[in-house]
Structures are given as structure tokens and as C-alpha cells.
Design a protein around this nucleic acid. Structure first.
Lengths: 250, 250
DNA sequence: CCTGACGTACTTGTATGGTAGCCGACACGA
DNA sequence: TCGTGTCGGCTACCATACAAGTACGTCAGG
């Protein structure tokens, strides 16, 4: 069961809160838990084999990231994909990654280039195996490594947070024809430009790549509109009828 | 009693967790709680008239922001000013504020300019009254307003988080001679450039301003080295009983 | 006197009980 | 038929009890 795995991991490493947090985060970003899904503290605690405390603390952290919405005395729900959240995440990601890349063009050494190229090779392999999940992990690692090479490894966590909102939508578009190949090509262009110390080229390549990702979200929006929504009102677990509800705190 | 005030505020506004979080955050950023100070969940709960739960949840959030360090089974301490944290905060702040300003130069309308100028006037007033605390609040509002005018009000929260690490150190340098006047001058330069749609000028003015703030931190480091530290190990063995109120010497 | 084992008083982490408030179903009355 | 009041079940929030672990003062033994 899930609980046994959690107990094992708990013995190995971190505390229950971190484990639950990471687990729920992965499930939300991976769309295993779809937007609008109700998350009950009691239910999760029972399912994961821990008490409500670490579950609750995890939900608070997820709420801070914008991945869940907490309505006191009402319930906690996986947040819907909101126009504003996605646009904001895109802005933050662009600003941070492009700023980092400006330093990266100067600071990256041959060792960094080699590691990035190794990740590109692994991505190509994942694409050939038609394994979008593997590609997702490698994509994360690529962008993280890029920021580390630029000398700003800590700022990655912020990009990581922002990226979650984009990935949640983007994931549905990845299995599409030739999508992975296109993204890998764009990654490669970035690395090439960095290796040649071509600041303008690198900037253009990465910007184009990030905009591509943003465009993918739009594609998904038209195909899966039910995942999106402004969500001033809490989603309904299993409703039959509409009812008006005034939102509480921010 | 402190608790009565909190209960009152609680009736008015949010839940206990948010109130405790904001209170502790203000005390830490305001250096009322100096770096290295131990924060006991029990002690805080008793002092604030709430149970451990909201206090603990607040500390978790503060730990996420990097303002406190939690050592399990050992204690929670106000984090020291770390070289890396400060540099990272500076990078994030520059990246986000400058990226926003690029949009702001195009999007800001006359109404935005007027509101910004009103804040500048208030800052000048605070400077004349030699009121650094008031200036700090107005500085926050100025930068927040600037990002809102640029069309990225949500990204402010990230800058706000980053700014905390800088402000904590900077606060000690603000009462210095002519510091406030210089900062206000720089703020004014930014607004002037934005009003004239001078993208390059605005970029240079804001970058210069942010670098100035960063330089102030260095000044403080040489004067108050005890506030800094890499803190691989818990800050202090064990300061028992009340020994705070250690006035900042020169 | 010096050294080292140990108990005690703390710490955070986790589990659980109690409370106020919201929603939806259902009975009742017009 | 439709509107309304009540009640049961759910929620998150908060308080409290227990468990696991660390540091330091104390004291026995050299």
C-alpha cells in the first residue's frame, strides 16, 4: 500500500510533512489529481497512513503555492487553472530564466555544457521511447541545471513553483505529435548559443522556447476547458445544481 | 494582554495563523527579533495567547521564506543573514522588477504616474520627519505600485519575499545621513523615466537604485558582523531567559 | 581536580479531541 | 407546487496530549 511506502521513505529520509507535500504536489502537477478535486484532510490522512497534522501542514504549503484552494469550514480543492495564475507564472519564469541566462552565457564552463548535452541526449532517448513522463523529469533537470550553470541555483525553486502552473496544463499537450522533438530542438539551440557565448542568440532561443510552452497551454485550454475556470466559487464535489456563493478570504 | 488584542483582530480579520505569521514576519524583518534569536513554539503560543498549532504553522511558512531555521528536536531560530540568501534575493528582485519595468514603461498611464508621485511626496515627508519606519512602509508601497502599474501585481509577492532578506540588513543603514534623500531621488528618477517612456533610462535608474540597496547591505555587514553567518550549526548553544533588547551598537 | 555517564528539562514532530460554521436533504406549512 | 425552517453530516481551525530526540547540569569514579 501507499502507507508502507511512505513509512519506508520516512525511515530513510525526511519527515512526514515533506513526504506528503511532495507526494501531493506530484499528483497535482501530474494531473493525477485533477483541478477541482476535493481534498479532505481526514481522507488523505487515512489513505496515507499518517495523522491529519502533516497532511494539513502540507495543504497549507500547497495553498501557498497556489496549487490548492482552502475554503474554511467548507473544504480544500485542487485549484483550477486560472488565466491569471498561468500568465503570472509565465512572467516570473521568463524574467528569472532569461536573467539567469544572461549570466550563464558568461559563466558556463565546458563542464556545464557537457552535463547539459548529456541531458539533451537523455531527452532524445525519452522521445524515442515515447515516454513523456521521463521527458518531464529531464526537462525539469535541464532548466534547473541551466540556472545552476548561470550561478543562480537557489532561484530555481521559484521557477520550479511557477513552472508547476504551466506544466499542469502543458502535460496534456506533450504526447502530441512531434511536440517533444520540437522542445528538444529548442533546448539544443539554447545550449549551442551558450557554448558559443552568443548572448543575443541564447536569449532569443530561450525566450522562444518559453513562449512555445506558453502557447501549448492555450492549445490545451481549447481542448480541455473543464480544467480551467476563474473559480471565485468553490468547486462542487458531486453537485447536481448550481448555487451562488460569495468567496471568503483572499 | 496580548491575547485580547489578537482575539479582537481575529474577530475582525483573518484566522490565527495569518495573524501570527504577519506579526512574526514584521518582528523579524523589523529586527525586533534579531538573527539568531531562538523561537520556542510553546513560548510564542503562551505569549500570543493561542495554542501551538497556529504558531507552528506560521513558523513553517517563515521557514519556507528563509526567515527562520528549524532544527528538529533542537529548536527554531531567526535565521542569520547569509551571503547566499542575500545575493539570491538581490538576483530575484532585480530580475523581476526590471522585467516588470520593461512592461511598465509602455503600460503605465497618467493615473499610475500620479499615484507614484503621491508616494514620492509622502516619502519626502517621512524623510523630513526623520521617520525611517514610515519610509520603509512607503518604500514597500512604491515598489508594489510600480509592479502593479506594469501589469504584474501578483509577482509582487515574490519580490516582497526576496526584499525581506535585503530589508532586514538594510534597515540598520537607513537612519544614516542622507540615505533616505538619496533613495527618494532614485525613486524619482525612475518615475521620471517611466513618464517619458524612456525604457533605457528607466532600466538604468531602477538598476542603479537596486544596486544601491545591495551596497547598503555590504556596509551593514562590516558594521554588524554578528548578524551575519553561514549557520551550518544552530546559532547559539542556548540563551536562557530574557536577554534580548540588545541595543544595536556602533 | 578532571573526566565521563546519566538524568532532566527542554525542543520539534505527530496524533487526536473538540468547536464553529457551511451545505444539502427533508419535513412541514401556505 | 413552492417556500421555509430544521437537522444531520461534513469541513477546516484550533487546542491539547503523547512521542522521539537533543543539550546541559549533575554527580560518581578515576
Amino acid at each position: 500500500m501507499t502507507s508502507s511506502g511512505l513509512h519506508a521513505a520516512r525511515a530513510r529520509g525526511g519527515n512526514a510533512r515533506q513526504l506528503v507535500h511532495e507526494l501531493l504536489r506530484a499528483r497535482i502537477v501530474g494531473l493525477e489529481l485533477q483541478p477541482g478535486t476535493p481534498l479532505s484532510e481526514n481522507e488523505l490522512a487515512a489513505e496515507l497512513g499518517v495523522s491529519r497534522t502533516p497532511v494539513r501542514e502540507s495543504l497549507i504549503l500547497l495553498a501557498e503555492e497556489g496549487l490548492v484552494d482552502v475554503y474554511p469550514q467548507l473544504g480544500t480543492f485542487v485549484s483550477r487553472l486560472r488565466e491569471q495564475d498561468i500568465a503570472s507564472a509565465q512572467f516570473v519564469r521568463e524574467a528569472l530564466e532569461l536573467a539567469a541566462l544572461r549570466d550563464g552565457v558568461e559563466r558556463a564552463d565546458q563542464r556545464d555544457i557537457l552535463e547539459l548535452r548529456a541531458l539533451l541526449a537523455a531527452q532524445t532517448d525519452a522521445e524515442r521511447r515515447r515516454d513523456p513522463e521521463a521527458f518531464f523529469r529531464l526537462d525539469e533537470e535541464f532548466h534547473a541545471r541551466l540556472m545552476a550553470a548561470a550561478g543562480h541555483p537557489e532561484a530555481w525553486s521559484l521557477v520550479h513553483h511557477a513552472k508547476a502552473h504551466l506544466d499542469r496544463a502543458r502535460r496534456l499537450s506533450l504526447p502530441l505529435e512531434d511536440q517533444l522533438a520540437l522542445l528538444i530542438r529548442q533546448h539544443t539551440d539554447v545550449v549551442d548559443a551558450v557554448e558559443q557565448r552568443d548572448a543575443q542568440g541564447a536569449d532569443a532561443a530561450l525566450r522562444g522556447h518559453l513562449r512555445q510552452v506558453f502557447a501549448d497551454v492555450e492549445t490545451v485550454r481549447t481542448r480541455h476547458p473543464q480544467l480551467f475556470g476563474e473559480a471565485d466559487t468553490p468547486p462542487r464535489p458531486r453537485p447536481r445544481r448550481e448555487s451562488r456563493k460569495r468567496s471568503v478570504d483572499r
